[in-house]
Design a protein around this nucleic acid. Structure first.
Lengths: 340, 340
DNA sequence: CTGAAAGCGCTTACAG
DNA sequence: CTGAAAGCGCTTACAG
């Protein structure tokens, strides 16, 4: 039931001019006389003309559509990135098609393909978990500009926008050391998670630089980190003879699980055990005590990624060069590490 | 730097056939011989051919793109709806363009226009707050299928998908009455919020049917409800000589604010004052006591809305008739109203 | 200053 | 069973 829209042809007929002239008049081409322009614009207005961007894009081999693929659209952090992408794209005349891979590599590959078929001008992607085989992603690189954000991979040669995971974790651990903690546990993901490994590296570096011994017993990993895993691993930590005096959970949700268990056992936070999360999710101020965490500026990540992508899309030059942009994070100190 | 993709023409040239034949072969047209089909498909595969959906859509006056406009993409509930829309759309061969109106009516109007220019086949929209003048939205209805979800308006004659706000609120209040509460306050938005008014109506109906007097002193409103407003209005309620014994906040975030203030004053929840929220956001299980609230199945709302829109898009018949679909909600009883 | 014509990649009614 | 041709709505090099 799509209704017919006014076309250049119709305006041309009405004014007894050619479509070429109408097109030029509406685009303010210098060749066209002011009188004609006025006349054309007036009629266009009357007929409620809106250019068919689809036809335009088709003609110009450009759709002005950017494809975005994220693992999970319901994560608050992801939505702030998407918001950044939407803002930046809109301001530069691009539309955004969003897809969710549900952390499924097969789906992710399908989506890349459909995006290509749809003629998107470029793709922004955050990798789904367990993207070990990057073959399919590499193929896309041959035909389209692609930029990775947040969940990235060094196996894919393209511009990447992410936070400084390692430094962020380093700062978090240093903060714990500064408030007097000496036995700091970490709850992380398996070694296949890029971000988790980076944060773990920051953890290790901070301990080493402060001459704190590293103890494998308080380095716990899981696949697919979440509140539940945070609870389970905290129970393990509490069962140790030699308990930690601080827990660094590499996601806020895991940290929430940690706090819930500590409270259940009436363990004082942060006096007995301090807790730090990662990402400054909205949960971090709901939980009590409020959670010390690392703020990741999603909006800036989104804007930056979109900005670089559009630059690549519009680059006449083929090889604009791949960059790795690290967005700075901020440690937000709250009650879970420091009593006010 | 968009790379050239293989076209029908190129395949045709390679096989010394016409593009028509190639097109038909790839689309499994019955007229084409099996031998030809095989030959064509083999070469297509080799050349990595992917049909240009853009050209296809252009030809067929159909883009297979659905436009989605939401007030705020960072709300968890909104993302679950979007996920539903994405799933349903993908399964029926549609792509989804997402825009955020930021609760700005001007932006909303612009977005409707751009979506139209982009040739979307239809639009799914949740109205931004304060959409009092619906002129612009009505105009769209003349040229495109439009379906409203969540934030709807009875001033716009189109299919609408929303929850049964009134019944949901009614059930929530009845639950409070059942656990012995007699003086139930409500924290709501101003009368311009459609959903808020519906919930308020449910509140009033429940009280009336149970012969509980209605007291304006414990009916508090605000523009733009959030945690902060929840706190402010709770302080007002606590300052009354005759305090309420239960508070129904028409959003979870306001309910979180309520709980935070009650805890600050060491008021026992639910014994002294019970609290109910609305929407079963992820916050509702983070806060302690865990929040009794109404679960809104976002995924189903999204799927249903997308489904009806696609039906309208594909309807040969012009007037498919407008429906109002009410998605059922569930009262989730937790510790803020009932001690386990 | 304006127009006729070609073309973007595809589909499809018409013809053979 | 296959092909030539038109056309979707626009832009633009070429011509005048």
């Amino acid at each position: 039931m799509k209704k017919e829209l006014t076309t250049l042809k119709q305006i041309a007929k009405k004014l007894d001019l050619s479509t070429s002239t109408i097109s030029r008049a509406l685009n303010d081409h210098p060749d066209i006389s002011e009188t004609t322009k006025k006349k054309v614009k007036k009629i266009a207005q009357e007929l409620n003309y809106v250019p068919n961007l689809f036809a335009k894009g088709f003609r110009q081999h450009k759709t002005n559509i950017i494809g975005v693929i994220v693992p999970n659209i319901t994560h608050y952090f992801t939505t702030t990135i998407i918001r950044g992408i939407l803002e930046e794209s809109a301001s530069k005349g691009y539309r955004v098609i969003v897809s969710e891979s549900n952390d499924d590599v097969i789906k992710q590959t399908e989506m890349l393909k459909t995006m290509m078929q749809f003629g998107v001008d470029g793709i922004l992607m955050s990798l789904s978990k367990m993207t070990r085989n990057v073959e399919n992603v590499l193929q896309i690189l041959n035909s389209l500009p692609l930029i990775l954000f947040d969940k990235v991979s060094n196996k894919i040669p393209c511009t990447q926008v992410r936070i400084n995971d390692e430094d962020a974790a380093y700062n978090a651990i240093e903060h714990l050391i500064n408030i007097g903690k000496k036995r700091i546990a970490i709850i992380k993901e398996s070694e296949f998670s890029y971000n988790s490994e980076k944060r773990f590296a920051g953890y290790l570096r901070a301990l080493k630089e402060h001459n704190i011994p590293i103890d494998d017993k308080i380095i716990l990993s899981c696949e697919d980190i979440n509140i539940e895993q945070g609870k389970i691993l905290t129970n393990i930590l509490l069962s140790l003879k030699n308990r930690p005096d601080a827990i660094f959970a590499i996601t806020d949700s895991a940290a929430i699980g940690v706090i819930k268990v500590l409270k259940k056992f009436n363990i004082k936070i942060p006096e007995e055990i301090a807790v730090i999360g990662f990402s400054n999710s909205s949960h971090s101020t709901i939980i009590e005590p409020q959670l010390t965490t690392i703020d990741q500026p999603g909006n800036r990540i989104g804007k930056t990624a979109a900005n670089y992508l559009i630059e690549e899309i519009e680059a006449a030059n083929e090889s604009i060069g791949n960059k790795t942009i690290e967005i700075k994070t901020n440690l937000i100190i709250r009650d879970s590490t420091f009593k006010v």
